[in-house]
């Protein structure tokens, strides 16, 4: 099966007040289509910086990133924006939806951005939202939806334009356990069904239960990769040897970026 995502010795260096920090240090990773990867690690381990580089929002200082056969290294800012719009789907921890657009309109937004807003697209958006259990919430504004429903709308928006790569940044951060499980399970199922590459950053190790692979980061490096289903289950339950318990939420440390 083809690797739709490859990183080759990707490194990100931040210049902070206390000196130079290698937030991501020579990370090499290959993910196949239809694979759902959970990226875990404590605050400052480099997982969000890696996610930002995969999303073309940050440029690595060293190394190479290839998504859907295209290297991100030679792209101009404009090309990156276009690439992000066409090839990447995104869900965020918060502020996921446009507050003045309904659930349906939020999903359709990606079609409009890509110039693919037509009847077939609208029908696909309706079906996707219905599949996510929001068939009766199509015309609700985000403020009229619960946190879990908002995340499901964001998942639909991330998938509607058939992206090669779907990124989720802490998608369960504001949800209770039951809803968090529902959201991640739905997300994983759709990644598998639609044969996309899915990367999820999470602090909540329980959510890794639905992943095909768990990548644990520490100090900017990949500390451990778990791809055995039983080991993943053990890791998510905290029973696997050396698996840390679920980490408490910590404020995200934001270093000042060094010129790339």
């Amino acid at each position: 099966m083809a690797n739709s995502l490859e990183t080759k010795a990707v490194t990100k260096i931040y210049q902070t007040d206390t000196g130079v920090t290698r937030a991501v240090d020579s990370v090499t990773l290959a993910v196949q289509n239809g694979e759902f990867v959970a990226l875990v690690g404590p605050s400052g381990s480099g997982k969000t910086s890696l996610l930002a580089m995969l999303a073309t929002l940050l440029s690595p200082n060293e190394g190479e990133i290839i998504i859907a056969g295209q290297s991100l290294m030679e792209m101009s800012d404009r090309e990156r924006t276009r690439f992000r719009r066409e090839k990447i789907g995104f869900t965020f921890q918060a502020n996921n939806l446009v507050s003045y657009l309904t659930a349906m309109e939020n999903v359709e937004l990606m079609l409009r951005l890509n110039g693919k807003y037509d009847r077939a697209g609208r029908e696909r958006a309706r079906e996707l939202l219905a599949r996510l259990g929001l068939g009766d919430r199509l015309n609700n504004l985000p403020r009229q939806l619960s946190g879990g429903q908002q995340q499901r709308v964001a998942i639909a928006r991330a998938l509607i334009h058939n992206p090669a790569l779907v990124l989720a940044d802490e998608p369960t951060a504001s949800l209770d356990t039951e809803r968090a499980y529902q959201v991640v399970q739905t997300f994983a199922n759709l990644i598998h069904e639609q044969n996309r590459v899915g990367i999820m950053v999470t602090h909540d190790l329980r959510m890794t239960a639905f992943a095909d692979r768990v990548v644990q980061m520490m100090d900017g490096k990949i500390r451990r990769v778990i791809d055995n289903h039983e080991e993943i289950t053990g890791f998510s339950r905290g029973t696997l040897s050396s698996a840390p318990p679920s980490e408490p939420r910590a404020p995200r440390l934001v270093p000042r970026l060094a010129p790339s």
């Binding site: 992000r84 719009r85 918060a94 502020n95 990606m110 951005l113």
Partner: peptide, 16 residues
Amino acid sequence: VPQIGMLKAVGASSPV
């Protein structure tokens, strides 16, 4: 600001 950041992150261009 957060909403504009999100729109840009999902690919809305500066002219838009």
